[in-house]
Write a protein that binds this DNA or RNA. Structure first.
Lengths: 201, 201
DNA sequence: GCATACTGTTACCGATCGGTCACAACAGAG
DNA sequence: CTCTGTTGTGACCGATCGGTAACAGTATGC
């Protein structure tokens, strides 16, 4: 119980971020890997290299933490949409193909599927604060996909966008039970086929 | 604390089934409504009109109960496949259209999606006994869908079946975050479009 | 009648859950 | 240096979790 040298090495788990950001980042990862109900706050704080009090000082409750994680995930997705438009300016068809490619990569690399969709499975109470975030996020995502299909001049852009949406969602959820060699493996081919089918000729 | 008249009326929750079947039925329903990790064994026994000891005498653990529920769900799905074949014998195309119709009805009526897929989201440990059941069940489902597409003489039956599979899975998961008016609402139209696209002409 | 098998009841176990308390240690700004 | 705001520590709370022990009641078959 002598003098304790602490707070200096700050090695391993803890990056140079502030505790709040470390908590958010770690919580998001652990929620995704183990499920929201499958991980406790204590495990999150330990993995983030901090403690429960610090968590509860920044986030009032586990539910609040969940909400912030979901919001962060959605913001990240929206940023990717923005990047996509910047990468192929004034070329919506290329943006659409790039979106499909990014989706396929996402399916291949992440075996746990979509954080948002998974959260919707676990957050069953209709009045859970996270549900609003989930629903708004998915609606916005749909809006952007429809917009892209419109700009890409597809015939029946709404139907095409919804089809692509279901294929993508289906691939991400299917991967969790049918594995990477299951139906999800053909997502790219299917999606590109849909785009071709709705192209104006 | 006088004489208690019990076990005679057996009203309300308890049907005339034996405790084991009541437990299985109730557990399946509650797992589906609240999530596997979202419901405790005590709540299940109460809803089933019995008690914890009876549960643990029939099922060794909560995990065992989960496994039996998943297996029952899969058996039910397989029975529906059999019924489909009996209903339209030697008419695989009609069976396929009927499968799509049943799927659409299922999407419309059940807001909580697929029990099996949801379980895959919650059961994150790779060695959980339920995972084997999930994976085998989904593989068998895929096999049957491919077989039906083959018998229906679709060109590229595997690709068609996988596309239908992803659309269905996507619709069921999407319904949980995007609601019944979201992309899932057009499942039937999309699926019939896929069948038409892969029809031999 | 009896024996056997199943069910119900109550109390209990240790572990973990989300969440809080009081207090000490620290960092940076003035 | 002091003041202030942010962290860390460890003990603690009540509630709930999955699971068990011991015993009493009931149903059925012989």
């Amino acid at each position: 119980m002598g003098v304790k040298i602490l707070q200096k090495p700050e090695e391993a788990t803890a990056s140079d971020l502030k505790p709040r950001d470390r908590l958010l980042h770690t919580a998001r990862d652990l929620f995704h890997q183990h499920g929201i109900k499958g991980i406790g706050v204590e495990a999150i704080t330990e993995a983030a290299g901090t403690n429960k009090m610090t968590l509860y000082r920044h986030f009032g409750s586990k539910d609040d933490l969940i909400v912030e994680c979901l919001q962060k995930a959605i913001n990240e997705t929206m940023s990717k949409w923005d990047e996509l438009e910047l990468e192929y300016p004034d070329n919506p068809k290329a943006q659409l193909i790039a979106w499909i490619g990014a989706g396929a990569q996402c399916i291949a690399s992440d075996k746990r599927g979509c954080e948002i969709a998974n959260a919707a499975v676990e957050l069953t109470e209709p009045d859970h604060p996270g549900r609003r975030v989930i629903e708004e996020g998915k609606k916005e995502h749909r809006r952007r996909l429809v917009g892209l299909c419109q700009r890409a001049d597809l015939t029946q852009p709404e139907l095409a966008a919804d089809t692509l949406c279901l294929l993508f969602e289906g691939a991400r959820i299917s991967r969790q039970s049918d594995g990477p060699e299951g139906p999800c493996a053909r997502f790219k081919r299917m999606a590109e086929g849909i785009v071709a089918a709705y192209e104006r000729k």
